[in-house]
Amino acid sequence: MANLKELRTRIASVKSTQQVTSAMKMVSAAKLRKAQDAIVQMRPYADKLDEILTTVSSNLDSEIENKYAGRKNKERILIVAITSNRGLCGGFNSNVVKKTSELYFQTFNEYSQKGKVDVFALGKKAVDGLKIKGIQVTKGYLDIYEGLNFTTITEITQSIMDGYTLGIYDHVELVYNQFKNAAVQNLVSKQFLPVKISETTEIQSRKGEFKPWYIFEPSMQEIADKIIPQSLKIQFYKAVLDSVASEHGARMTAMHKATDNADVLIRELKLQYNQARQAAITNEILEIVSGANAQLN
């Protein structure tokens, strides 16, 4: 039987760990609410932008020409992995790293063999995790989560989009956790560039609906030229916001579980402690009684 003092210190240490985890859970819950608010705040902008894009393209006779459309040959690929800077959030970061390396070594294997796959990593955990997997990270963005805002994210998006228009990359893939709710995050890998065709088909299906006769200034094409990059930036920003909200959700769940585990552990240790204590008392009484008996005889 373990000795009493040892058990006492273990119970104390588990208790203090439990305090830490339950505090972290509360902090994450508060941060999650903030992150969710940011997503909600962005929605009206994104919706309106989509609506205008739909209006413009349904009025435009020909297909919208844009420099973000698909190309015939796919030569260089960029994977953007979005993670967090901090750990202790369950499988949140490792899932992204796993998916990224799966894309790197399997899906785009023939490209990575020739060294034609670049990886951008948002968040420290992606940089570290991918290095362990043996993937060279071309660019790591570590300081974006301090005072996260649209402008800083847009700079990254712009550099990616410039990379596409200049022909450095022909395909850009985003890997991140999509936010479902506090307990559920969906790991997704989404094609960022070229702009997907499915969106345009949705627009086409809405053609023929009644639309007010808009005046377009300066011209429909120029408006489309402005909206498409903007909507890409919004998409990217949304991915980052989703990832941030998911991170806090994941951490909240992880910390909740840790707190529960600590409870179970404390209960078990207390049982052991009481058993040990009782055994010690019984032993003592036995000694006293046998001592007294010896005196009598």
Binding site: I52, T55, V56, P212, W213, Y214, I215, F216, E217, P218, E222, I223, K226
Partner: peptide, 19 residues
């Protein structure tokens, strides 16, 4: 501040989309 120059919108303006 429209791209083609500054303009104003008042009550009952015709539908417009502008950069």
């Amino acid at each position: 501040p429209g791209t083609l120059g500054s303009f104003e919108i008042m009550e009952n303006h015709a539908p417009i989309i502008s950069t």
